[in-house]
């Protein structure tokens, strides 16, 4: 990513979503499918099991968009989603991983 493009990207407002889900095959498809069917790009995805592994936590980095509030409501409707929390883009979960994503 060149410097200009990177600045453009950062100029876009971002949001981080923290989503607690049941941990079984297909849950990620349910979540990201809601975004892809609306041509809404997911910029970053992290997911690991939590505690005893019956639940996972998905972190999504997305662009701010007028559709974001509707997206959150749609995600909340999924049977396998337990909770959705919204954070600002500076949330440490993605910023601390930047070293792993150097070009």
């Amino acid at each position: 990513m060149n410097a200009i493009h990177r600045e453009e990207q950062q100029a876009l407002a971002r949001a981080v979503l923290e989503i607690d889900v049941a941990n079984h095959p297909g849950v990620m498809s349910h979540v990201v499918g809601l975004f892809s069917r609306r041509a809404y790009n997911v910029e970053g995805i992290l997911c690991l099991p939590v505690g005893d592994g019956r639940q996972s936590r998905i972190w999504l980095l997305v662009n701010e968009d007028t559709r974001l509030a509707q997206m959150i409501r749609q995600v909340e409707k999924l049977e396998d989603v337990i909770a959705v929390r919204r954070h600002h883009a500076e949330h440490a979960v993605f910023t601390e991983l930047e070293d792993f994503f150097r070009p």
């Binding site: 297909g26 498809s29 349910h30 499918g33 069917r37 999924l78 049977e79």
Partner: peptide
């Protein structure tokens, strides 16, 4: 079938 039915069901199970 599971993958195909995700966006057109309220919920699905395999």
């Amino acid at each position: 079938t599971y993958g195909l039915s995700i966006p057109i069901t309220k919920h699905n199970f395999l």
